[in-house]
Write a protein that binds this DNA or RNA. Sequence first.
DNA 1: AAAAAAT
Length: 500
Amino acid sequence: MADDGKATPEKKSWADVEEEEEAKAKAEAEAAADASSSAADAQAKQIEALSLSVPEEEEGGGGGGDEHGPPLLDDSDESQIQAVTSGGTVYESASAFEDLKLTQELLKGLHDEMGFSRPSKIQAVTLPMILTPPYKDLIAQAHNGSGKTTCFVLGMLSRVDPHRKVPQAICICPTRELAQQNKSVLTRMGKFTGITCACAIPPAQKDYVPISRMPSVTDQVVIGTSGTLIKWITHKKLATREIKILVFDEADHMLAEDGFRSDSERIMRDIQRSAGGCQVLLFSATFNDRVKDFVTKVIKDGNQIFVKKEDLTLEKVKQYKVLVPNERAKIDVIKDKIFEFGQKVGQVIIFVRTKQSTKDVHNALTLEDYVCSSIQGSLDQSEREKIIQEFKNGYTKVLISTDVLARGFDQAQVNLVINYDMPIKFGTRDEPDYEVYLHRIGRAGRFGRKGAVFNLLCGGTDNTVMRKIEDYFQHKVPEVRNWQSEEDFETALKDAGLVE
DNA sequence: AAAAAAT
């Protein structure tokens, strides 16, 4: 009966750089002139009650790999959110997938293949917005693990014509792993529709074929990373003429981060030119003020859903500080505490700051016969896939990773996250990367499950970073009193609900 | 002092 969290794969015209700077300056001016009616604020419908209400875990019985549906919405009034949005259109929140005029094939995929019974809150609110003509753009923020993937996957599956063998939907992701994961969700959900999906990521070396010899894409949906998508478009392997819907997963990152931003702009411009525009969906758990301001200027007339940053931390994922005297002690904590307790409870991801650190930590642990694996973006593609596969299979329990897996990676059994290094903004010493922090801890507690996070802090800088994070999210993080005490760790895991 | 994406 104490069987917890079996896989529920949640399952689930355009500004130039200069214009953005201009927009930023303008926004600041506006904000100064009239704080109460800045354009972004006025339009944003802050739906604050969007946090998922998840039933207590009540899964019984074993059953390998069988999947549960998403948590049911409460039968309270809360489940009936009415969002009045841009253009005055009123959308009725969907209390059942049946309310959405989906095809029988799609409903079958949702119920039979995915095991979903009813929409999660973010799904209930956004799906009508996505699926009701006129198809308006959407910027949607919702908590980690709350079911965003299903929103845009269902959006793409509903809007493409299965009978036309031509690309009609594109989804852009920040990492290859996320692209593959999203493709896998879409393929499962669309199992009975006949819709197919191509994954636009660089091939493993062994599968390499020159782009000139690659056949044109005939799949209705293409999900990929920005560089490869651009490559396919440039070489006329991916026609954008009939694209009806364009999705940015982890949109704050894709639209605001250097490198990604220009790629994203490029793809939007291509579609704008050849297809005359299409519905654009932006999804992420994080949109900081700066990015929110930017994206609301890029996607002007869309519907918007935002969550206050103070409401973003997941209640069921307990965070802790662990003060250690030196770097070496971090390894000891992993060995003596995390391997001791953590991997018995579920799977563990250890986040480090650099690629080199993944190797260092991995080696240090391997030297002492601890079994783990590590991943970072410089590994060969086939190696990356193998490591992910082994982790998703549950074959490996402890995975050391750079921020390549910080966003979107969905593995229900992960209920423990270790911040071996705290995330800091590039070029700074003690300025936290709040978004990365939130995404990392969101790897635990998928779909309302319980989880724990241990922040390993060594020295003044780490403490400063942690304190700023607490202030930012207005969330006090308790301390594990003694890093050497087994009891203290056990108590923490008990409080988190991970051990009896 | 950087993760990521890709040529």
